[in-house]
Amino acid sequence: MKNRKGAIPIIILLGSWLLFVASVGWEPDPIALKIPKNWPKPAYDFSKNPLTKQGIELGRRLFYDPILSRDSTVSCSNCHLSFTAFTHVDHALSHGIEDRIGARNSPALMNLAWAKSFMWDGAVNHLDFQALAPIAHPTEMDHSIEKVVQKIKTKPGYQARFFEAFGDSAVTGERLLKALAQFELTLLSANSKYDRMILGQEKFTEQEHNGYQLFQKNCASCHAEPLFTSHEFEKNGLPLDTSLNDFGRMKITKLPSDSLKFKVPTLRNIEFSYPYMHDGRFKKLRDVLNHYTQTTALDRKIELSPNEKVDLVAFLLTLTDREFLFNPDFSFPRD
């Protein structure tokens, strides 16, 4: 018994030493994003937020957790559903908390490491900061990052996950945003029929091939391969919807020349990301193509016969990536 008493302080010392080692010695498992062959260099600076298994998993949990909204009812996935290319289908304008209707169609999320700006008007300059907008917007989550951080601190399980991801259990705005960004950066779509055709693993049908040529002639200047977006802001000839009065990019730059310019969206997985355009005014790809051939507001006239439109749609369907849409790593986390 005497010896045991002497052991107590040693245990204390040993315990605190272990804690010390744990706090400075913990390293999460690094993960490298697989950059598809022949793709450009990502825009995201991974050195400032290195991907790790634990960081991605924390981000995924946050993405699917309605705790981000004021009344804990709405999560990111409400408007960005994995099975529909991470967008809100069937709704022209996405709805958030208490069924409040927003002013824009939620964008599909994929290949975000290559994106240079976010939102239809480029209001957000970095993927890390993107989540701040829906969290605070009154028609989306109607909350604030300060309150979200407070709530997450007291929710069981999160502190341990923050420790695993960042080697420290403190929940901060920076870490929360970086974890969300880590998960979003993994949403890579690069295994469509088009990609396999490019790699020589699969062949297009004659119709798809014809559609591809029409695409390259008429669409590729904005929807540039391989990401199917130039990441620029362009006028697409849509007349102003006076019920929304959304002038797009001009709101950010205050330049009249940017009036009615919107970010060029990717066409990948477009089969699943309906409705289309910034305000979701078109339900079918056919409607979109009809707009482009009918509008007189574009600098360059796009001419397509009805048969050519059918071929072009056939090509657009080759951009569907089922591995991406049904990837279990992207769906709701189950314990």
Binding site: D45, H126, D128, L132, G173, E174, K178
Partner: peptide
């Protein structure tokens, strides 16, 4: 610094000094 992504300390977006609707 404004375009370099999320940062901590005094720059943490929880400090109430970051616009949410437009980065900055």
């Amino acid at each position: 610094t404004q375009i370099s992504g999320a940062m901590g300390g005094d720059l943490d977006p929880t400090k109430g000094m970051f616009w949410t609707w437009q980065s900055g």
